[in-house]
Amino acid sequence: MTTSAKSTSFDYVKSQLFHSRKKNIEVVSNFSPSVNGFNKNCFDGSKSFRLYNRIHPNIDVVVNGKKINGSASVGETSYVGLKKCEVIKYKEEDLAQTCMLGKFVEGRFVYKQTFIIRSYEIGPDKTATMETLMNLLQETALNHVTSSGLAGNGFGATREMSLRKLIWVVTRVHVQVNKYSSWGDVVEIDTWVDAAGKNGMRRDWIIRDYRTQNVITRATSTWVTMNRETRRLSKIPDEVRQEVEPFYLNRYVFANGDDDPDKINKLTDDTADIIQSGLAPRWNDMDANQHVNNVKYIGWILESVPLNVLQDYDMTSMTLEYRRECRQANVLESLTTMKNADPLTTITKDIESTHLLRMQDDRAEIVRARTKWLPKNMIDQQP
Score class of each variant (00 low, 15 high):
45 G>W: 05
265 N>R: 14
321 E>N: 15
221 S>E: 05
261 P>N: 13
128 A>I: 09
8 T>M: 02
55 I>D: 00
316 T>P: 01
228 R>E: 06
276 Q>K: 15
376 K>W: 01
181 S>Q: 14
213 Q>H: 13
277 S>N: 14
346 T>R: 14
17 L>K: 05
78 S>M: 05
347 I>N: 12
242 Q>T: 12
303 E>Q: 15
184 G>N: 07
347 I>C: 12
260 D>R: 12
45 G>H: 10
350 D>E: 14
178 N>C: 07
64 N>D: 15
22 K>G: 15
221 S>L: 03
256 N>Q: 14
12 Y>E: 04
215 V>G: 04
379 I>G: 01
11 D>T: 13
295 V>G: 01
213 Q>D: 11
289 N>L: 00
24 N>G: 15
224 V>S: 05
96 A>Y: 07
250 N>T: 06
32 S>D: 15
274 I>R: 11
325 E>P: 03
315 M>R: 06
127 T>G: 01
192 W>D: 03
271 T>K: 03
333 E>H: 01
119 S>T: 12
242 Q>Y: 04
28 V>P: 00
196 A>G: 08
121 E>W: 02
381 Q>I: 02
121 E>P: 09
345 T>Y: 12
69 N>C: 02
333 E>I: 05
189 I>H: 06
187 V>D: 02
150 L>G: 09
373 W>I: 04
166 L>D: 02
129 T>L: 03
118 R>L: 08
361 D>E: 13
233 L>C: 11
183 W>H: 09
382 Q>S: 04
45 G>D: 10
57 P>Q: 06
180 Y>T: 05
262 D>I: 01
